[in-house]
Each structure stands twice: as structure tokens, then as C-alpha cells.
Amino acid sequence: MDFIDWDFIVSRAPLFWAAAKLTVKLAVGGILLAAALGFLCAVARFYRIPVFNQIAYFYIELARNTPLMVQLFFLYFGLPRLGLVWEGQTCAIVGLTFLGGAYMAEAFRGGLAAINRNQVESALSIGLSRIQTLRYVIAPQALAVAWPAISATVIFLMKETSVFSIVALPDLMYVAKDLLKEGHSGETNLLLILSYLTIILPVSLFFGRMERRLRFAGFGS
């Protein structure tokens, strides 16, 4: 079949494989850091810790209402002029963490907000420690409520990694754009679609599966 040039696909696949590994690496790093940052912000907001609460609010609104590309341009092209020079990978992870931390914070906050104060008091009154209350009463229920939002955030952040070529990283979009010069746009695009599907679809399916299992963790819902 000469409609698709399979030799081209087979010979260029390793390029996409390498780029996909970079994308996964940056996405995993950024998403884990974002989750950690988001957790801290959500706790600061939930317990209304003075000063940190306001800082967290300001940061969350700033990061959620601006595009990642603009954040990255400022980080990568703006800040070095003020003396803060960093390489592309660091910048990409910092950018993804900055953006994702805010979305994660909102996701966690939604989960925490759904927990009735009675739950905490009841847990303490039957003799659980604060840590145990968090571990066995608050966290499972909050996670069940927050899961759809966490899942949407993870997928969103994975898709956002597609802009990393602007900070000079050889990611999937970079490789695809480079290959287009050789013609073969159909094959290149096919490889691009397959690469993203291979990376993101399993994550999407996994989170969907977990969502169905976690649904029963909420009390009385």
C-alpha cells in the first residue's frame, strides 16, 4: 500500500519515542510538584492560616487566569534579563508546576470543602488522633470528591506539555515540526497523534477507572 509510507514511519519512530520520553519525564515531574504545591495551598486555604491563605489565594487566581505559554515566555525570556537564568527543562517544569499547582489546589479544596465538620469532631470523639483523623476520615472522603477534578487537571497538564518547544525543548511537537520539512505530512501527523494517544489515553483510562472505584468512599453519597 503506497498510501502510507511505512518505511518512513518505522525509520522515524525512534525520534518520536525519544521525544515522548522527554514529554513524559517533564509531565511527571511537573504534575508531582504541582500536586505537592497544590496540597500546601489547599491546606493553607482550608485552615485559613494567616498570610499564607492570602498568598495562596493570590497565587491561585494569578496562575489559573493566565496561559501557560505566557507564563513560560516570562520565565524563559523575561526573567534571565533580571539575572535569573535557567535552562529549558527546569523552566518547563517550573512553569508546569506554577500552572498546575493552582489547579490542584482548587481540586483539593473542593474535596476538603465537601467534608462536614461533624466528621472531624466525631472522629476525634471516638478517640482517633489528629493524624488518624486525617488519614482514615478526611483524606479518603476528600480524595473521592476531588478525584474527577484531579483527573481533569492531570490530563490538562499532560496536554499543556505540548507547548514546551517554545523553551527550546525537543518534544513531540518540535520533532513533528522538524520532520515536516521532509514532506510526508500525513505520516508525520499520524506519528504525532499516535504518540499523544499512547501517552495520554492510558492515563485517562486509569483515572476513569479509579474514579468509579473511589465513588463509594464518600459517606452517604
Binding site: I155, K159, A176, S185, N189, L192
Partner: peptide
């Protein structure tokens, strides 16, 4: 819906811009 949700918009933009014109 699932395809559009899983594919980065940037990839779609790129595919439609470059394939429609060239292919």
C-alpha cells in the same frame, strides 16, 4: 469527545494547518 479531550489542542492545530494545506 474523548478524542478531542485526549489530544492536545496544539497538536490538532498543527495537524489541520499543515496537513490540510499540504496533503
Amino acid at each position: 469527545l474523548e478524542f478531542v479531550r485526549v489530544m492536545p489542542i496544539l497538536a490538532l492545530l498543527f495537524i489541520f494547518y499543515y496537513s490540510l494545506s499540504k496533503f
